[in-house]
């Protein structure tokens, strides 16, 4: 193998060469000191490119309170409970409608027949039939 060019060495360092090419190059590097030196230089530079750093202060970010139970979930859950309650109440009301009519009419049952004050009648003559339960 001839001495590889810089691009090939760079590809080797970046591990983007085909396996067979990489193997062949490795064989050459084992035998050629000048290429090995060039390869080491490239390797060092690549490492340098990847380690540029600037001061990073890790902030003290507290665990978000919403972690335990997100607020949105609370609202949604409350809405769901209200909805279920409404639906249950409504269907129950529909199912019990006839019974409730009786209750209502019983509530409005007159307690006593209306009697004209100006023309008092004997008890027997009061028409209680008009005031019967609906």
């Amino acid at each position: 193998m001839n001495h590889p060019d810089e691009d090939t060495l760079l590809k080797y360092v970046l591990e983007v060469l085909d396996t067979s090419d990489a193997r062949e190059l490795k064989g050459h590097l084992d035998a050629c000191a000048s290429c090995r030196l060039a390869c080491d230089t490239i390797e060092r530079q690549v490492r340098q490119l990847g380690t540029v750093s600037f001061p990073i202060e890790t902030p003290d970010l507290p665990l978000p309170a919403s972690t335990r139970r997100p607020y949105v979930l609370y609202v949604l859950r409350a809405a769901a409970i209200l909805l279920v309650g409404f639906v249950l109440g409504y269907t129950t009301a529909l199912m019990r409608e006839p019974e409730m009519q009786v209750v209502i009419s019983q509530q409005f049952r007159p307690t006593a027949p209306r009697v004209s004050v100006s023309h008092p009648l004997p008890c027997e003559q009061v028409d209680i039939g008009r005031h019967r339960v609906l």
């Binding site: 691009d7 760079l10 590809k11 970046l14 983007v16 530079q45 690549v46 490119l49």
Partner: peptide, 15 residues
């Protein structure tokens, strides 16, 4: 792989 190769080559050339 090729993007990384060109990225590193460009940086090296410039530096």
């Amino acid at each position: 792989k090729s993007r990384l190769f060109y990225a590193v080559r460009t940086c090296r050339d410039e530096l």
